[in-house]
Computed example of a mutant assay.
Amino acid sequence: MCAFIKVSIATFAVCNRISKVLGFDDYKFIATPVVLLMLSFSIFVTQNTMESHFSISNIWQYYSFPFEAIIPFVVFIVAEIRRKRTKVL
């Protein structure tokens, strides 16, 4: 159930942003192509459940570390430097 809600929110956000970027008033007609692209991409990324389990257990921990630790830390450092500069000026 949680995975369904997470995918639904992500799909809504993607459709909403695409409609805003392209200048459309309504996002609903973009939902079908986005869902079809997500479905085809998910089939392209992993062919079966065993391959998905292997990638999650062996590869994901090294792949996700920069996105979960390094990049937020760098963004925090840059934000602190900018905040200190604006206080001085």
Rank of each mutant, 00 (worst) to 15 (best):
M1H: 04
M1D: 14
A3K: 05
A3L: 11
F4R: 09
I5D: 05
S8R: 03
I9G: 05
I9R: 11
T11S: 07
T11G: 13
T11M: 13
F12W: 12
F12E: 06
A13E: 09
A13K: 04
V14G: 03
V14R: 08
C15L: 00
C15G: 14
N16P: 00
N16M: 06
I18T: 12
I18H: 06
I18L: 15
S19Q: 12
K20R: 05
V21T: 01
L22V: 08
L22T: 03
L22N: 02
G23I: 09
G23T: 04
F24Q: 02
F24W: 10
D25E: 10
D26Y: 10
D26F: 08
D26V: 05
Y27A: 13
Y27H: 10
Y27V: 02
K28T: 08
K28Q: 12
K28Y: 12
K28I: 12
F29S: 13
I30P: 02
A31M: 13
A31E: 05
T32C: 00
P33W: 09
V35K: 04
V35Q: 01
V35F: 01
L36E: 14
L39F: 12
F41T: 14
F41R: 15
S42V: 00
S42E: 15
I43M: 11
I43D: 04
F44G: 03
V45D: 00
V45M: 09
V45H: 04
T46E: 15
T46D: 14
N48G: 03
M50H: 12
M50W: 07
E51Y: 00
S52C: 14
S52E: 14
S52P: 00
S52V: 08
I56K: 00
N58K: 13
N58E: 15
N58D: 04
N58T: 15
I59W: 15
S64M: 07
S64R: 10
S64V: 14
P66V: 01
F67V: 06
E68G: 04
E68Q: 13
A69E: 08
I70P: 03
I70L: 06
I71C: 12
P72A: 02
P72M: 10
F73P: 02
V75D: 05
V75I: 12
F76Y: 15
F76V: 04
A79V: 06
A79G: 10
A79D: 08
E80A: 02
I81E: 02
I81A: 06
I81C: 02
I81M: 05
R82Q: 11
K84Q: 05
K84P: 02
R85H: 13
R85A: 09
K87V: 06
V88A: 09
